[in-house]
Each structure stands twice: as structure tokens, then as C-alpha cells.
Simulated scan of single mutants.
Amino acid sequence: MKTLYYPEDDILELVFNDKPITRETSQDWNVNVSYAADGSIVQMVILDAVAAGLIPFHSEQSKLAA
């Protein structure tokens, strides 16, 4: 699993595998889930992740600013 966070846009991307994406769904206005042909989750993208309080995420950048 790979986790990417883009602090300038407050986007969290969770990548579970590198299978080709065949279907995407929105779980809410800010959570999108991508699936492979076998039904497994390939990735999740969470918009406004920290602002919405969905994760208590602290990047190295925010630690340096404190």
C-alpha cells in the first residue's frame, strides 16, 4: 500500500495495488473509490481530508512549521 498526501490541496490518496482501474464510484462528495475488474479496491482518493476531520494527519511540513 502506498499513501500520498498533497497538503497544498488537502488530498489523501491511498493506493492498494497497481491493477488497472475498471470502475470508479463516489462514496460522498469527497471520497472516491476505484476498483479493478476482480472487484478489489485499487485506490481511494479523499478530498479535503484533514479539513473534513476524516484523518488526523500531520505531515513533516506541518511539524516544521510548529
Rank of each mutant, 00 (worst) to 15 (best):
T3P: 06
Y6T: 11
K63V: 15
K63F: 15
V15R: 08
K63D: 08
A65P: 02
L47V: 07
A52L: 14
G39S: 09
F16P: 02
H58Y: 11
L64P: 06
Q61A: 15
S59F: 10
M1T: 13
Y35F: 15
S26D: 06
F16G: 01
M44Y: 02
L4G: 03
V33Q: 00
K63M: 15
A49C: 10
L14I: 11
R23G: 08
F16L: 11
I41V: 15
P56E: 03
A37H: 09
D18Q: 11
V42C: 02
T22W: 05
L14R: 02
L47D: 02
S40N: 09
V45I: 15
L4A: 07
M1K: 10
L47N: 06
L64C: 10
I55Y: 00
L47F: 10
P7M: 09
T3K: 14
S26A: 05
Y5M: 14
G53C: 03
Y5A: 12
N17P: 10
I55W: 01
R23W: 03
Y6S: 11
Q43G: 00
Y6W: 13
K19I: 04
N30A: 08
D9L: 11
V33R: 04
Q61G: 10
E60K: 12
I46Y: 01
E8S: 00
Y5K: 13
S62H: 02
Y35N: 01
M44L: 01
Q43K: 07
Q61T: 15
H58D: 12
F57I: 14
Q27S: 06
Y6C: 10
N17S: 13
I55H: 03
D38N: 12
E24S: 15
N32E: 14
D38L: 06
D10R: 00
D38F: 07
I11M: 03
S59Y: 08
N17A: 10
N17V: 14
A51E: 07
R23V: 06
A36R: 00
E8T: 02
K63Y: 15
Y6G: 05
V42D: 01
E60C: 08
L14G: 04
Y5R: 13
W29V: 13
A37S: 14
S34M: 10
A52T: 10
A51N: 09
D10I: 01
F57N: 03
A36V: 05
P7N: 07
A37T: 09
P7E: 09
I21Q: 05
D38A: 06
D28Y: 06
S34E: 11
V15K: 07
I55D: 02
